[in-house]
Design a protein around this nucleic acid. Structure first.
Length: 441
RNA sequence: GGCGCCUUCGUCAAGUGGUUAAGACACCGCCCUCUCACGGCGGGUUCAAGGGUUCGAAUCCCUUAGGCGUCACCA
C-alpha cells in the first residue's frame, strides 16, 4: 500500500484566509489519520506577488493552529527544497523534456503545453466522482514563463510527483484546470495522484448576501480571529466542522487528536459552507467554560484590569461562562476600574417596585452593615447581606438592585453584588455606595 | 457566454428507495436565579421547482432555475 502523503501549498501572501486554513487542516488530518506525511510547500513563483516574511507567517500560523508539517522549508524532509523559487532547475529540465518529446513548444520566450484538440479528459475526484472535460476547452497554457519561473499548473504537477504526494486536497477552483495536470502526468508517464476538490467556505456580508469568504465579511483570517480573542483550538475545531462531519456521531467538540482519530474523507461535504460567527461564538464559549479558572485567567490576563492574583482567578470564574471571545472582556469589566456617570434613572426598577427614593432607604442601612464588616471575603459578605435581606423583609432582588446600581452604575454586571463588593474591596465599595446615597438624597 | 461543480431548517449538517427527515448553532417559551450568564426542559421552521422510474423517492433519471468556479506568462 502506497504511503499517504498530502501537502498544503500556499503562495506566500502574508494572509491566512480561513478557507486556506481549512484546506491545510483537512490535508493534515487525512495524512495523520492514515499514518502518513503532511508537507508544506511554498508556491512563490509569482515574483510580483511576493511578500516579505510571508513564509514565516505561514509557518507561525500553522504552528498556532497545531497543524505541524512533517516536511517543509524549515521542517526538513527528503525532497527539499520545499520552496518553488529554489527549484527552477528542476522545472526547466522537465519543460525541456516536454519540448523534446513534442508535448510543448516555445513561444515568446516561454514554453507552452501542447493540448490535444480533440477528445476529452476524465479524472476521478473522491468527492465528485468522474469529471470529464472536453480537450477543446483546454488552452496551450504556459508552463515556463519568460522569466524562467514555472506556472502553478506546471510546478504543482512536477512537485507533487517528485515529492510523492498521494492525495491532492485543494479548492474547487482547480477542478477545471485539473485535466491539464492530468495530461502532464500522462506525458511523463507518471502515476496519477488522488484528487479531492474541496467546496469553498462562504461568508455572509452585512447585507445578508453570501459569497466566497473575503475581507469584506469582517475578520476572516486566522489571525484576525486570534486577535478578536478566540482560542486557536476553538477556531480549528469550528473550521474543521465547516465542510466535514464525523460518521456515526454527533460530537462537535474535538481536540486535534480526536479530529485525527475521527477524520475520514467520506465525511467531507461537497457543497459550500457559510462561515457563521454565532456558532463560532458558541463553540468558543464551550472552550472557555471547559477551562480551569487559572487557565482562563492566564489567556485573558492582558484584558484584565489590575487585580492581585487571587482576584484575577476569581474574575476568571465569573467571566468564563459569559464570554465568546476575549476582546469582550474590557467592556464587561471596565466599571470595576471606572464608575460610569451617575444616572438616577437606573434606580427605578418596576419588577422590584423600586424608585430612587426607595433605593436610598435600602442603601442607608445596608451601608451601615457593610461598614462593620471586617472580613471582606465572599462568604462573610454573603452572610451579612443575607441576614440583612431576611431582617428587612424585602425580596432579595429589591435589596440587590440598588446595591448593584450604586456599585456599578449599570443594570447588568458579570456576577452578583457580593462578587462586585469583593472585587472592589471595602474602601472603594463604600465610597461608591455612599456617593450614590448622597446623590439620591 | 462556453465548460464544470453545487442545491436537506436562517446557518453547520445526518441521511445513499420504506425514518415521526437525526443532532448542533441561532431564535422563541418555561424553570433556576440579586442582574447578565451558566445549567435544565420544551417549541416552531427544511428536502430549489417541475417531470418521470417505482407499490413506495430527500435518496435513481431528465429538464428548469439559482448559486459558485473557470476560461492569465495569478495561484
Amino acid at each position: 500500500m502506497k504511503r499517504i502523503r498530502t501537502r498544503f501549498a500556499p503562495s506566500p501572501t502574508g494572509y491566512m484566509h480561513i478557507g486556506n486554513l481549512r484546506t491545510a487542516l483537512y490535508a493534515y488530518l487525512f495524512a495523520k489519520s492514515q499514518g502518513g506525511d503532511f508537507i508544506l510547500r511554498i508556491e512563490d513563483t509569482d515574483r510580483a506577488r511576493y511578500v516579505a516574511d510571508a513564509v514565516d507567517f505561514i509557518e507561525r500560523t500553522l504552528a498556532a493552529a497545531k497543524i505541524i508539517p512533517d516536511e517543509g522549508p524549515h521542517h526538513g524532509g527528503n525532497f527539499a527544497p520545499y520552496v518553488q523559487s529554489e527549484r527552477m532547475d528542476i522545472y526547466k529540465k522537465y519543460a525541456e523534456q516536454l519540448v523534446a518529446d513534442g508535448h510543448a513548444y516555445r513561444e515568446d520566450g516561454a514554453i507552452r503545453q501542447k493540448m490535444p484538440r480533440v477528445g476529452e479528459t476524465t479524472f476521478f475526484d473522491v468527492l465528485h466522482g468522474n469529471i470529464t472535460i472536453a480537450n477543446s476547452e483546454l488552452e496551450d497554457q504556459v508552463l515556463l514563463k519568460s522569466d524562467g519561473m514555472p506556472t502553478y499548473n506546471f510546478a504543482n504537477v512536477i512537485d507533487d510527483h517528485l515529492m510523492e504526494v498521494s492525495h491532492i486536497i485543494r479548492g474547487t477552483e482547480f477542478i477545471t484546470s485539473t485535466p491539464k495536470h492530468v495530461l502532464l502526468y500522462e506525458f511523463f508517464g507518471w502515476e496519477l495522484p488522488t484528487f479531492i476538490h474541496l467546496a469553498p467556505v462562504m461568508g455572509k456580508a452585512d447585507d445578508g448576501t453570501v459569497s466566497k469568504l473575503s475581507k469584506r465579511h469582517g475578520a476572516t483570517s486566522f489571525n484576525d480571529l486570534i486577535e478578536a480573542g478566540y482560542l486557536p483550538e476553538a477556531i480549528t475545531n469550528y473550521v474543521a466542522l465547516l465542510g466535514w462531519s464525523p460518521k456515526n456521531s454527533c460530537q462537535e467538540i474535538f481536540s486535534m487528536d480526536e479530529l485525527i482519530k475521527n477524520f475520514s474523507l467520506d465525511g467531507l461535504s461537497k457543497s459550500p459552507a457559510v462561515f457563521d460567527y454565532a456558532k463560532l461564538d458558541w463553540m468558543s464559549g464551550e472552550y472557555f467554560k471547559a477551562m480551569t479558572d487559572e487557565n482562563f485567567a492566564a489567556v485573558a490576563e492582558k484584558y484584565f484590569v489590575d487585580f492581585d492574583a487571587p482576584k484575577k482567578i476569581f474574575l476568571a470564574s465569573l467571566l468564563k461562562t459569559r464570554v465568546a471571545k476575549l476582546s469582550e472582556i474590557p467592556a464587561m469589566i471596565s466599571f470595576l476600574k471606572n464608575l460610569p456617570p451617575f444616572d438616577v434613572e437606573l434606580f427605578t426598577n418596576k419588577r422590584n417596585k423600586l424608585t430612587p427614593q426607595k433605593s436610598a432607604e435600602i442603601l442607608a442601612p445596608a451601608i451601615k452593615i457593610l461598614e462593620q464588616v471586617d472580613d471582606w471575603s465572599l462568604d462573610a459578605l454573603n452572610e451579612k447581606i443575607s441576614a440583612f435581606v431576611a431582617q428587612s423583609g424585602l425580596k432579595v432582588g429589591a435589596v440587590m438592585w440598588p446595591l448593584r446600581i450604586a456599585l456599578s452604575m449599570q443594570k447588568v454586571t458579570p456576577g452578583g453584588v457580593t462578587e462586585i463588593l469583593y472585587l472592589l474591596g471595602k474602601k472603594i465599595s463604600l465610597e461608591r455606595l455612599n456617593g450614590a446615597l448622597e446623590k439620591l438624597t
